[in-house]
Each structure stands twice: as structure tokens, then as C-alpha cells.
Amino acid sequence: MEDMVHVDRAMSTEQDIKISAKGVQVHYADTHAIRDVDVDIDDKTVTAFIGPSGCGKSTFLRCINRMNDTIDIARVTGDIRIDGEDIYDPKVDPVQLRAKVGMVFQKPNPFPKSIYDNVAYGPKIHGLARNKADLDEIVEKSLRKAALWDEAKDRLTAPGTGLSGGQQQRLCIARAIATAPEVLLMDEPCSALDPIATAQVEELIDELRRSFSVVIVTHSMQQAARVSQKTAFFHLGNLVEYDDTDKIFTNPQDPRTESYISGRIG
């Protein structure tokens, strides 16, 4: 385990910047949820956001695919760029953006449809398949990538809600990657899962890094240490520290980071 992490980290240093955020502020009605966050997230890397509850890590994650647009009272200012393009530009259609920046949620939320239709939903609405054979292929590829194919291939027409919690979450991951996103956002994807399912999903996240830039919000420091190459520590809406994961966990620069890691705040 230790060795693997080292090898991965060596790879990650050569990556390009995928997402670049400057001076991001978020207000919910009167609350100032995110204060002036600057961060550069690398491509083909797993970046973990950690911090105590209510620190703004999920809020910031939702800024990256503009899911905060769906909340009436949320106001986002500042500059977030993906591949150099400002995603809050009025010309940007959030619908197109979200196809490019997929999201997996805290609780598995499969649609009340069959497993096949769950995965095919994104490609269908975005018109990614020319015909049925294409769609079949996308579904199979996505399910394979999400390590669910072997369990699901014989019951593609069964409802997605009938799967176990861990399978449901992998189905949601398959559903997200079926639209061929470039970035995958994961909002505490394992918090509703048992340890075995968590291990499977973590393994999967490590696989996904080959194809996407993955940003994961997590409550568990161990999980951040296991799956991520870079870690950002949020506290009270501020980005306190952002660095290589092993540096954050072995030699944090900020006393607040150190307190959190050692369990004094949180």
C-alpha cells in the first residue's frame, strides 16, 4: 500500500492543470460559505477536499459543475476555469458543463429505472450514441469501468434501486462516466456505505484516475490518504492548505491543519 502511493505521487507531478479557481466566494443568503478560495487542480489526479463538517468543502465542489445554480439563495463570485475557459461566463450553458463535469453524490441515488436505463440516461440526453449498438457499448464500457459489469450483466433490465448500497453507488459512478466527462466530482461517495463496499469504491476511484481528473470530498482522513495524490484542507470556508497528500499528512504547514489531522478539531 505504502509503495503504491509513492509511485502514484511521482506520476502526478507531471500533470497539467485541469481546473483553476481564483478568488471564489459563495454566499447562501446571509452566510458567507466560501471565502476567497484559490486552487489549481491537476488532470489525471485524485484531489481530496477534507475538513470538518460545514467547512464549505462540498459547497466548493458544487461550484465546479454549477450545481449551486439549482439553489435559489446561493450566489457564487470569483473565477473558475476548466481548461482555461471560465465556467461562469454567461455564454456557458450549465447543461453542457455538467456533461463535461460529472458528479457522484453522497447517497446513492439511482433513478427508479432499470440498470441499463440508469447508465444510458446521460448518453441519451446528450445524444452520445448514434444507434442502439453504440448505446449498448457505452453502457457496457461504463459498467466495466465502474467494476459493476460482472455483477450486473445478467440483470440489466432489473431496477437499479434493487441493488445493494455499494452496487448502487458504483451504478451512479457508471452513470456519471457514461457521458464521457473530463472531471468527476465525488461528494463523500462512501459515507453511506459499509467498509467492504467502501473498499471497492476506493479501488475504483484509483482506477478512474487514469481517465479523469477526480475531485473527492471526504470526511475520512484515512480515505483521503489512501486514494488521493493532492489534498486541500478547508476550515470555516477558507482553503487553509493545499499540497501533496503525503506532505499534508506528514508535515502540515498550518497549525489548523495539524490540529485537524491530529484530531483536535473536527
Partner: peptide, 19 residues
């Protein structure tokens, strides 16, 4: 959560409602 799942995939609100 069901709506978020659909919107997060890039569906428009009306697609989310209808489908």
C-alpha cells in the same frame, strides 16, 4: 437527490422532470 442526480449528469430541468 433524484433531481440532483439527473441535473448533475447535465440534464435540463425539463428533462429531469419528464424522465
Amino acid at each position: 437527490a433524484m433531481r440532483d442526480g439527473s441535473l448533475g449528469l447535465g440534464a435540463t430541468p425539463s428533462e429531469t422532470i419528464r424522465q
